[in-house]
Write a protein that binds this DNA or RNA. Structure first.
Lengths: 324, 324
DNA sequence: TTTCGGCATGTTCACGGTCACACACGCCGG
DNA sequence: CCGGCGTGTGTGACCGTGAACATGCCGAAA
């Protein structure tokens, strides 16, 4: 032990914790010895005595998708910078048992904070039931939950996308939404509907999808049998990709015959054919702010509960004026 | 404490550890009390005394990409099933300091195993220097490192892709490789070169890319100014996407004028225009096997050090016979 | 000079588990 | 009838750290 080599025992602890009253000389001696024997403080012992784990848990679903993955990476980076560790639990299915299992797994580590990136309504409900006793933040929000959320303003983003289509002159616009129980899907749908009615454009019922390009393709084929629209607002880029695929398969042109707009701005979106007009979300910023919120770096009284990040419209080649 | 409610103290510990000699009646009593007061064993205390953290560290780069993200999710699931936790550290840059920092961060948790998904040669070198004292596995391999690796057989996959192009009749084939210091990039490049020479096709020097669709697009534009080729093998799907974008921008057709084949089979690949011919890697299986290897579930003598998973060629619409 | 207060450091204890060992009990064989 | 053994349970030490308290030293004030 470092204490044998140097002098004592508590002194080492004081050096580690930057206690003020330590003679610089002593401090240096301890540091030297620590370096020499590659001393590493034992986290378990520290956690035991302080009863603080310094671990932030992340409960996520669909962590292979670009958005969640980016957020996770950003959270990890921010947490690390603050001396925290991140432990993830990924949901394989969305049933209550699976959620409870993942949550129990995280709880067993006595996490100090929890970030929920599993944006199903159901997850939040289960969360509430389990009476999680640590501060937690969800990265998605419909704007009226009684919990702490932090999100890209999905509604504003969806309105941005919808307004873009309307301003181009489209009147027959479909919305391909995400799964019904996803908070984000709901928010985007709401944004779409809000903007449509604000601009007095007649609305058709949104179609519920599952975020995958496969589904977008399938829906596209179905819709094109009728073709009573000139534009589609897809609530993510993958489905937009599938839609474009279907449009081309039908021998039609994007944006000539159908304008398509996505959501997220995944890195590939600029290279789709045609390059996809979409709404950019800054996932990394989201992750950073999320940790800041959790760790209370931000004055908790100064921060609004529903802090939002404003998304940005990225106009590329998949939207144009309708041709009729 | 549960011990007050029930009877004693060590008995609780024995119940927790499934010690054989406990009377079923006593065991049940303890379990009941535990359930009642929602007793959770303190991981820190246990880790302290057993000096086992039950944490597996993951060092990853580019965790926002589909492949790594899938592997991470699979590792997490497998680890959880075995009662382990997963802690991730993501590399923001590939310099030695950043690697050392991430590694130190993981080491500070006294991880019991390490999975390296940051597939740069440099990472492995730094790893060796830091003399990591836990078992570790890398998910990438050129096949001749003296370390424990587990990987999709990249070389075989690259040969599969190359052979496909050659069999279609292509003779002027470019290879758009990944960054030079990435192990996977190197392996795929090697597979490409091996197959080309095995089939006696003259080879041009591979072009080094950076995995992004942006780069693929850029390279595509450059290459098309000369146009001395009929096919390109891109070492991932994103760059293939960029390439196809560039080809179309030049007014040419895929696969009519240029055949393009990718690598990975990301979920979107089937919906690119045209649907991308590519090589599928089973990342999830990789993650599972990886944990099994680490935890020694597999008889360590029975397992080869360089266990591999065979990738699969997925033929779609971006490749065809050359048209001349 | 004595006393007091602050600084630098040492000592003791507690955190919540596991481990090694001790103990009580009932059963068996010599 | 007694000693040994196996079963089920309790006792005490210990893991490495930080908090609370104690100690020794020195300089300034009384």
């Amino acid at each position: 032990m470092a204490r044998l080599a140097g002098v004592s025992h508590q002194t080492v602890s004081r050096v580690l914790n930057h206690h003020p009253s330590i003679r610089p000389e002593t401090k240096q001696r301890v540091l030297d010895v620590m370096a020499e024997l590659q001393y590493k403080p034992n986290r378990a012992a520290r956690a035991l005595v302080t009863s603080r784990s310094r671990i932030i848990g992340i409960l996520s679903a669909s962590s292979t998708q670009y958005g969640p993955a980016s957020s996770i990476a950003a959270i990890e980076a921010a947490a690390r910078a603050s001396g925290y560790w991140v432990s993830t639990a990924n949901l394989e299915s969305t049933d209550a048992a699976s959620i409870a299992d993942a949550l129990a797994h995280l709880a067993a580590q006595s996490i100090e904070g929890l970030v929920v990136i599993a944006p199903q309504v159901r997850v939040l409900e289960t969360l509430a039931e389990m009476s999680i006793d640590v501060p937690f933040v969800t990265l998605q929000s419909t704007g009226d939950e009684p919990i702490r959320t932090l999100s890209v303003d999905q509604i504003a983003g969806a309105r941005l996308a919808t307004r873009h289509l309307i301003e181009l002159g489209h009147r027959n616009i479909y919305h391909l939404a995400g799964p019904q129980d996803w908070i984000e899907a709901e928010a985007r749908m709401r944004g779409f509907l809000d903007e449509m009615s604000a601009q007095d454009v007649p609305t058709t019922a949104p179609i519920l999808g599952d975020w995958t390009a496969d589904f977008g393709y399938y829906v596209g084929r179905e819709l094109l049998t009728v073709r009573d629209f000139t534009a589609i607002f897809s609530s993510n880029d993958q489905m937009a990709l599938g839609l474009m695929h279907a449009v081309r398969d039908a021998g039609l042109d994007v944006p000539g015959d159908v304008s398509i707009i996505g959501f997220d701005d995944i890195p590939e979106a600029a290279h789709f054919w045609p390059p996809l007009t979409t709404v950019r979300q800054d996932f990394a910023e989201l992750g950073r702010r999320c940790v800041a919120l959790l760790l209370g770096d931000i004055d908790p009284t100064a921060v609004e509960h529903h802090s939002t990040i404003v998304p940005e419209l990225i106009v590329r080649g998949s939207t144009s004026r309708p041709s009729f």
